[in-house]
Structure formats: C-alpha cells, structure tokens
C-alpha cells in the first residue's frame, strides 16, 4: 500500500477534455466544459480566473470530490501516472487521495474538523496510507508541524482547531497535505481567506516545501501576482474553458487573449499608480447555464468580431507551449468557415 510507484512518467497528470456539469433547477450548469492540461513532475501550474469560472470544480474533479448529485463528471479523462482516475474503483481512489494527490482548501477555518484534536486529524492521515504505529505517526506529525513553522508543535498538536489562528490553521492543513509525501499538491485558493502578510508566508512555504519534496503543485487563484511569483505554467480559465495556456513569463510578456490582457492590466501596480485610473474589465462573467455556442467573453471584449457571437474559437498554438482560443489568431478562411 505505502510503496509508491517508482516508474517515471513524463506527465504526472494529464487532463483530457474534462467536462463536469451540474444539474440545477434552472438548467445544466457547465461548470467545466472540455478542458485539457498537463502537469509535469516538479512543475508548478497556476490556474487563474474570476470566481465561478470553474477553477475549483476542475480540481475537485481530479480528486473526484464533486458532490453528486447535483454534480457529475460527464466526459473526459484524467490520467495520473498513466491510469485514468475516472475509471478507478472507490478503494483504488482512496489510495490516490491524500497519498498521491493531496489538497489544501480555500478556507482553513472550516476545512479542519472542529471536534477533533489536530493530533487526531494528522495521525489518521498518516495511518491511512502508511503502515506505521500511532506513536511514530505522532512523531512524524510533530516533525511536519515544525516544518511548516508552527512554534511549540509538540504541545500545540494536542489543541483543537479553534485554538489556532487562520494562518496557523492553513499551515496545519499544509502539513497534513504533505505528511504523506504526495506527488501532487492541489492548493485551492490557499490564501484567499488570510491576511495579506500571512499570504506571502504561506505561498513561500508551499513553494519551499514543494521544491524540497519535489512535489508537483497546482495552484488555483484569482490573483495574478501569486501566479507570477510561483508558477512555471499558467492556464487562464473563463466560463468553464481554458482560454489561454502558456509559460508564466511568456504570458506576462505577450498575453494573447484579450481576457488575459485585461486581467494583467487590472493588477494594480505601484509604479503606475499615480498616472491614471485602474484598469478594469467591464461587465460580468456570464451565467454558464445554457450558454449558446459563442465566445463567452465577446460581450466584454473590445476586439469582438461577428464570428465571436456565433462560434467558439478553435485553439491555436502560438509557439512554444503557448496556446490560445481566440478568433484573433485565426485567418479569414477559418473565420468564414466558422
């Protein structure tokens, strides 16, 4: 059980055409609608987008943690080290959850069980996946808490979650997530609920530990600043689809999709603060219920063309690992075909 596969794969994780839909009273919500991306060993991938664009659903789908009903993964494949997670049995899946892929959630206040001591929650995580005694697991938990920088870990481990501050709880979450030496760490907006000063510490911690343990990381965020500092590659999501995928430096230097451009522009910058207004993208992200076939961004796009209103653009490769879905990068032939 605890022996981890040593076979090396080029891509730790391959997501192919993943579709996750929610059945609601109002209609089918296509929260994730055909997205694909890869994650290499040791790589840090950022997924960026406004709230409601499907970032979190993507990652819950990878863990198959979509609450069902109403949610359902209706199509696609998710390969982890060559096996399709979506086809695994419940017990095989448990072997992956927490052990191979672990998650840090957005809100550390509610993600820890308030009725159980930290020690209980950490020890159980280790004992599920590793064949060691409770005492050894406790030792290891204390080590992990020390690693994430919890002072006086030896005695604090016997406290309940409500006796920790938000930042400390998120550290506990990270310690718990890394305690089984998972190969992939998914961090779902790990700093959104925290103070700005704590945010930087937590992100640094994730970065440091992932380097140390050679863990692949997926960071979900709406904060481009976080991405710039941490990620090797970035996916930009809009209305359930990935609109642009590139290396981080590339994306910042040459944003191709108008949405990406807008996002980057709207980050407040100290050096430009005095000479002008803040940039913002006008309008609201669309309601993803019963969306007609069109580019969902067209109402907010300054460069929208007629074809944008009737057809979703094809994905274009703009060079090394830089993909974009936008009609701007197609030729007339393609547009008229569309």
């Amino acid at each position: 059980m605890s022996k981890k596969t040593t076979k090396q794969f080029d891509n730790m994780l391959e997501v192919r055409d993943l579709k996750t839909h929610f059945l609601t009273d109002a209609g089918i919500v296509k929260a994730v609608d055909g997205i694909s991306f890869d994650l290499k060993q040791g790589e840090t991938l950022g997924i960026v987008g406004e709230s409601g664009c499907g970032k979190s659903v993507t990652n819950l789908s990878i863990m198959r943690l979509i609450p069902s009903p109403p949610g359902k993964i209706v199509g696609g494949e998710i390969f982890f080290e060559g096996q399709d997670i979506l086809k695994l049995s419940e017990s095989e899946l448990r072997h992956i959850r927490g052990n191979m892929i672990s998650m840090i959630f957005q809100d550390p206040m509610t993600s820890l069980n308030p009725f159980l001591k930290i020690s209980t929650q950490m020890i159980e995580t280790i004992c599920i996946h590793q064949d060691i005694s409770k005492k050894a697991a406790l030792e290891k938990s204390i080590d992990m808490l020390n690693l994430v920088g919890i002072p006086d870990a030896k005695s604090r481990i016997h406290n309940y979650p409500h006796q920790f501050s938000g930042g400390m709880r998120q550290r506990v979450m990270i310690a718990m997530a890394l305690s089984c030496e998972a190969k992939i760490l998914i961090a779902d907006e790990p700093t959104t609920a925290l103070d700005v000063t704590i945010q930087a510490q937590i992100l640094e911690l994730i970065q440091k530990l992932s380097r140390q343990l050679n863990t692949s990381v997926i960071i979900i965020t709406h904060d481009l600043g976080v991405v710039a500092g941490m990620c090797d590659n970035v996916c930009v999501m809009y209305a359930g689809k990935i609109v642009e995928k590139a290396k981080t430096e590339d994306l910042y230097a040459h944003p191709a999709h108008p949405y990406t451009f807008g996002l980057i522009q709207s980050v407040p910058r100290l050096d430009k603060a005095k000479n002008g207004r803040l940039f913002s993208i006008e309008g609201q992200p669309p309601n993803v219920i019963d969306l007609p076939p069109c580019c969902p961004f067209h109402p907010r796009c300054e460069k929208a063309m007629d074809v944008c209103r009737t057809q979703y653009p094809p994905t274009k490769n703009l060079g090394e690992h830089h993909e974009v879905s936008c009609w701007l990068y197609t030729d007339d032939q393609e547009r008229s075909n569309g």
Binding site: L65, R94, R97, S102, T110, S111, L112, T125
Partner: peptide, 15 residues
Amino acid sequence: LRSDYIRTAKAKGMR
C-alpha cells in the same frame, strides 16, 4: 456531510 471538513477527510482518502 456537506461541510468542508468532511471534504477534507474525503480528500485524505478515508473510507
């Protein structure tokens, strides 16, 4: 069962 900490427990791979 819908709460966040149960999701955490599921993500840990508990039965």
